[in-house]
Measured scan of single mutants.
Amino acid sequence: GQVNVNNTTYTFPTPKLAKEFAQKAAKKYNLTVHVSGNTVTVK
């Protein structure tokens, strides 16, 4: 799974890890998680 945070893309071996990372990043920066297919964007 891929996660985009502040124009930086992070790649994870599983969608589960990507989702967990996205949720932590969203909480940390007070942003929202947007899911589109296999790509998760935090903005």
Rank of each mutant, 00 (worst) to 15 (best):
G1Q: 11
G1S: 12
G1R: 07
G1K: 08
G1E: 11
G1L: 12
G1V: 14
Q2H: 12
Q2T: 12
V3L: 12
V3I: 12
V3P: 12
V3G: 12
V3C: 14
V3A: 12
N4M: 11
N4D: 10
N4E: 10
N4Q: 12
N4H: 13
N4L: 11
N4T: 12
V5W: 14
V5M: 12
V5I: 13
V5P: 11
V5K: 12
V5L: 12
N6Q: 13
N6K: 14
N6M: 14
N6L: 14
N7P: 10
N7Q: 15
N7L: 15
N7S: 15
N7Y: 15
N7H: 15
N7I: 15
N7R: 14
T8C: 15
T8Q: 09
T8W: 15
T8H: 15
T8Y: 15
T9N: 04
T9A: 05
T9P: 02
T9G: 03
T9R: 08
T9I: 13
Y10F: 10
Y10E: 01
Y10W: 09
Y10K: 02
Y10Q: 01
Y10M: 04
Y10I: 06
Y10D: 00
Y10G: 00
T11H: 10
T11E: 05
T11Q: 06
T11F: 09
T11K: 07
T11M: 06
T11D: 03
F12D: 00
F12H: 01
F12Y: 02
P13F: 06
P13A: 14
P13G: 06
P13D: 09
P13I: 06
P13V: 06
P13M: 08
P13E: 08
P13Y: 05
T14G: 03
T14M: 02
T14E: 03
P15G: 06
P15T: 10
P15Q: 10
P15V: 13
P15S: 11
P15K: 10
K16L: 10
K16D: 10
K16F: 08
K16G: 07
K16E: 14
K16T: 08
K16H: 09
L17K: 09
L17D: 07
L17E: 10
L17M: 13
L17S: 05
A18S: 02
A18F: 02
A18K: 00
A18Q: 00
K19P: 00
K19A: 10
K19M: 14
K19L: 13
K19I: 11
K19T: 07
K19E: 10
K19G: 04
E20K: 13
E20T: 06
E20L: 15
E20G: 05
E20Q: 13
E20M: 14
E20I: 14
E20N: 07
F21V: 02
F21L: 01
F21E: 01
A22W: 02
A22F: 02
A22R: 02
A22N: 01
Q23Y: 13
Q23N: 09
Q23H: 09
Q23W: 13
Q23D: 10
Q23L: 13
K24P: 00
K24R: 14
K24A: 09
K24M: 14
K24E: 06
K24G: 04
K24W: 15
A25K: 04
A26E: 08
A26F: 09
A26L: 10
A26R: 15
A26M: 13
A26P: 02
K27N: 07
K27L: 11
K27F: 08
K27R: 10
K27D: 07
K27W: 07
K27Q: 10
K27M: 09
K27Y: 08
K27E: 10
K28T: 06
K28Y: 14
K28P: 01
K28L: 14
K28F: 13
Y29G: 06
Y29M: 05
Y29A: 05
Y29Q: 05
N30H: 12
N30Q: 07
N30C: 07
N30Y: 09
N30G: 15
N30E: 04
L31W: 13
L31R: 05
L31Y: 06
L31I: 10
L31K: 04
L31A: 08
L31Q: 05
T32I: 14
T32M: 08
T32V: 13
T32L: 08
V33T: 04
V33L: 06
V33S: 02
V33D: 00
V33W: 03
V33A: 05
V33P: 03
V33K: 00
H34K: 08
H34M: 13
H34P: 01
H34R: 07
V35G: 01
V35N: 02
V35D: 01
V35M: 04
V35C: 03
V35I: 09
V35P: 01
S36L: 10
S36M: 10
S36Y: 09
S36I: 11
S36E: 12
S36W: 09
S36K: 10
S36H: 11
S36Q: 11
S36D: 11
G37Y: 04
G37P: 00
G37R: 04
G37Q: 04
G37M: 04
G37K: 04
G37L: 04
G37S: 03
G37W: 04
G37V: 03
G37D: 04
N38E: 03
N38F: 05
N38M: 06
N38W: 03
T39V: 11
T39H: 05
T39W: 03
T39F: 05
T39S: 06
T39K: 09
T39G: 02
V40R: 00
V40L: 02
V40W: 03
V40C: 00
V40M: 02
V40A: 04
V40K: 00
V40Y: 04
T41L: 06
T41Q: 06
T41R: 05
T41P: 00
T41Y: 09
T41N: 04
T41D: 03
V42L: 09
V42G: 01
V42N: 00
V42Y: 03
V42E: 00
V42T: 03
V42A: 02
V42P: 01
V42S: 01
K43T: 14
K43G: 07
K43A: 10
K43E: 13
